[in-house]
Design a protein around this nucleic acid. Structure first.
Lengths: 108, 108
DNA sequence: TTAAATTTGTCAATGATTGACAAGTTAATT
DNA sequence: AATTAACTTGTCAATCATTGACAAATTTAA
């Protein structure tokens, strides 16, 4: 796995021999913007994770793990959060699940 | 610690016997909006964490931990992410620190 | 050199967040 | 019960960040 999500996409794309234009078409975005995403100058929109999974036949669960893992890491780095933050996050997500057994919206 | 950040603020505020209006003034926001924050209908802006710490003489580190821990938990719940996400986050934040020893911006 | 691929810059359109205020309800006090 | 303070809710324009789109420049490969 690459260090950043953008590099990861680039890896996938070049491994498959696709151009920016070709992959951009699959992801329904401009090739110039995909370039920026791969170079870490723009965010990859979470709404397109499913398209990305389809394009490369990836496990959506692993993809979400990478994507959100990176999002959280960037925030933590930016605000210099302690690793305790992740422990709290785990507690809180378990709490959310426990009080709301019925998953109202499944995004993927 | 309360389950949500809004409830946590409310706890702090009522413990100190402050009204919404009084605390809102300290945080430089409208009391109506503070009410929504406490009731989970609006987000607490991260830019105000330092004001909150000052108002209640709290450890800013603990406050960040609670705040971002909750943010991450909400995302994970919303997108039904696996707990692996947090492990990846930890790896990535360590990686970010290792490649960028010099902290360019310290927010707090 | 030419053509394809990629990068960069810019900007208007879009969308989400926020601040502000009015109007409503609830709770406490007299 | 009437009055007042505290809180809640709804709304909307202003603000801010994100996105899509395109042109132009640069790099890479043939």
């Amino acid at each position: 796995m690459k260090a950043t999500f953008g590099e990861y996409i680039r890896q996938l794309r070049t491994d498959k021999g696709l151009t920016l234009t070709e992959l951009a078409a699959l992801l329904k975005l401009d090739s110039a913007n995909l370039s920026k995403i791969e170079n870490g100058k723009r965010e990859f929109d979470e709404k397109r994770l499913d398209k990305l999974a389809t394009a490369f036949d990836l496990d959506i669960e692993k993809l979400k793990t990478e994507y959100f893992g990176e999002q959280f890491a960037k925030k933590m780095y930016q605000y210099n959060c302690s690793s305790e933050t992740l422990i709290v996050a785990e507690e809180k997500v378990n709490y959310l699940k426990s009080i709301n057994v019925k998953q109202t919206e499944i995004k993927f």
